[in-house]
Amino acid sequence: MDWKTITQIDRRYLYIILFIFVSIPLLSPLNLPILVGEHAQAMYDTTETLSAGDIVVCSFDFGPATIPENRPQAKGFLFQARELGLRVVATAFWASGGPLGEDILRDVYGSDFPAIPEYGTDVVYLGYIPGNEVGMQTFGDDTWTAKGTDHYGTPMADIPLMQDTRAAEDLSLWCEITSGTPGEQQVIQFVQGRHGGPAALPLVVGSTAVSVPGMMPFYAAGQIVGILNGLSGAGEYESLLAGAYGYPTELLAPLDAQSVAHVIVILFIIAGNISYVLTRSSGGKEK
């Protein structure tokens, strides 16, 4: 096989090469340095400006497919909120996010969650709220109407934290962990836009990397004030939390694997283009 015919290589060889090279850093991390970008820094700084007792929403709007990206983002935000003494109203506007959110809350607040002393006063889990963007709108307009009980069947009236959470006006920050619709754009349109804009309800977003380009106009306009861009954004956020609060780092190995995968893809592209150029220069036609 020469360079001209390399494009005809069986794709299964590519899969094997990728699998082997991605596995190596997962088994033996390279510990590449993580440089914190402006988007993750903005998310961290925005959350830091809040005062103990402020009420924040953390919405788990993703499914199992994007757990590797979204879970560490949500976990990091909940950790920072707990460290700052913020009161967290956690919920999900995706049915698939309901069980995943509960799992993340157990990771942060302890395996006994919700049977913990601070449940109901400092943190509450409403679970899945149906209706997509309409559910979001109802939540912002009249939180108790959106769902009558928390995830465990306790009426809103019996939850102290929900006594102070009647509408979007009571919230100091909305953290949207998302991988699609409804997501950050629906929060902007149906909650933030109806309740005083970004000055009244700042929005930070943890998102899959593939969705971030589409939300940049909203970041430029100030409607989104901080973004965790996929796994790398979660890693940057994690390193900030580790420096400030001793947050345990978990993403070094996955980020190393991501780095290796990206380099492999670039090498594949270079190889493919060398073959393409050589084929064209010899007057051949690429298959």
Partner: peptide
């Protein structure tokens, strides 16, 4: 069951993207 299957299917994208980039990204 559901979480494992959904994550598995989505993970396959990494391989497809690598293969697609190799074949589609041309000068």
């Amino acid at each position: 069951i559901y979480v494992s299957m959904d994550m598995t299917i989505f993970s396959l994208l990494a391989f497809f993207i690598a293969s697609a980039a190799y074949r589609a990204f041309r000068l």
